[in-house]
Simulated assay, not measured.
Amino acid sequence: MAAQIDHSAERLLGIVLVTASAAVFGLAGILTKSIRAEPMVIACWRGLVGALLITAYVFWRRGRAGSAHSMRLGWRGWLMAVVGAGASLAFVSAFKHTYVANVAIIYATAPFVAALFAWLLMRERVRGQTMLAAVLSLAGVGLMVFAGAGTGRPFGDGLALIMTATSALYMVLIRAFRETPAVWAGAVAAFLVFALAWFVADPLAVSAHDAALLGAFGLSYALASILWTEGARLIPSAEAGLLGSAEVPFAIVFGWLVLAEIPPTTSFVGGAVVLTAVLAHAGRDWLQARALRAA
């Protein structure tokens, strides 16, 4: 009985941590739009602050676990870092040029794009339910992007698509290069963006208002990553994926409450299609995993 109570408490903690992670990740859109600096500068400081905090967390975890895994990247790690840097730049730039809701919903299709890349690069079998969910979600995204052409925001939607594709590729590379320290590669990606910013922008030319928000942005990025890492250890991956989908409605609600941002009707229609596909797919995985545990 005591073991069962401990397991229930552990699972509840995992649910709280992953849900909190989704809520913190959902702040990205309003933070980006509240900062007046250009996207390169935002990505630069958000990445640097976040990377330093995450790196400190990684070394703290290594010290507690007594781990001595190598931090050497090699060409695989550097490839992951470059892809991650590109995803970070597209991520921040997309929020500057389109609705928060559009970016969040388009990014929700990343798992399906990752499944496509995994099939192309690693010949992993794609399940029928994943294919169906991917077709539906891409149809919803297509509707949103097509509608954006009439609102002057197709560039931002295009950046969101690039961000989604590069993020999906990063997911696949993590699985393909299992021996590569993925968290450290993510930190190096942030340092690459910081270095690039010194050549094409002026990272020091920020106001006190922007500096405070940039620090908060980096802190939220690190906090969300750590909450996800700790929470996902305590619950099944299918359940973590389902709860992680809450990032999309959190982002949309925050955009509405803080920025009074209301996308056009077609964005809501396309978003409903995407969210239905994502939640149905994640929910089916969760139910299947639950049935297996019960058996």
Score class of each variant (00 low, 15 high):
122 M>V: 09
289 A>R: 02
185 A>S: 14
104 A>G: 01
112 F>A: 05
20 A>P: 03
26 G>T: 07
152 G>L: 04
8 S>T: 13
47 G>E: 08
162 I>S: 03
105 I>Q: 00
235 I>H: 01
293 R>H: 09
262 I>C: 09
150 G>E: 03
231 G>A: 09
186 G>N: 13
54 I>G: 02
144 M>N: 03
123 R>D: 12
80 M>F: 08
208 A>H: 09
194 F>Y: 10
63 G>Q: 09
111 P>R: 10
146 F>S: 13
62 R>F: 03
188 V>Q: 02
83 V>Y: 06
126 V>I: 15
209 H>R: 15
21 S>D: 09
2 A>N: 12
275 L>K: 02
236 P>F: 13
18 V>D: 08
102 N>M: 01
64 R>S: 06
27 L>S: 11
18 V>G: 05
179 E>D: 15
140 G>S: 08
241 G>A: 10
281 H>R: 12
208 A>L: 14
194 F>W: 14
57 Y>L: 10
93 S>V: 11
80 M>I: 07
5 I>G: 01
133 A>I: 11
202 D>H: 14
164 T>C: 12
83 V>L: 07
24 V>L: 08
200 V>F: 14
165 A>T: 06
120 L>P: 01
9 A>H: 12
47 G>K: 13
19 T>D: 04
31 L>A: 04
8 S>L: 15
30 I>P: 00
55 T>S: 10
278 V>N: 00
29 G>N: 05
18 V>K: 07
184 W>F: 15
116 L>H: 02
214 L>C: 08
283 G>E: 03
87 A>K: 08
136 L>F: 09
164 T>L: 06
281 H>E: 07
73 L>C: 13
134 A>F: 07
71 M>S: 04
4 Q>L: 11
48 L>A: 12
30 I>E: 00
29 G>L: 06
123 R>M: 05
230 E>N: 02
140 G>P: 01
138 L>T: 02
107 Y>A: 14
52 L>K: 09
219 L>G: 04
16 V>P: 01
13 L>R: 15
25 F>D: 00
263 P>N: 10
220 S>Y: 07
194 F>L: 09
121 L>S: 02
251 A>R: 00
238 A>K: 05
260 A>D: 14
227 L>K: 08
207 S>R: 12
102 N>E: 04
134 A>G: 05
259 L>I: 06
39 P>G: 10
129 Q>W: 09
63 G>H: 13
182 A>W: 06
228 W>A: 12
162 I>T: 10
106 I>Y: 03
146 F>T: 15
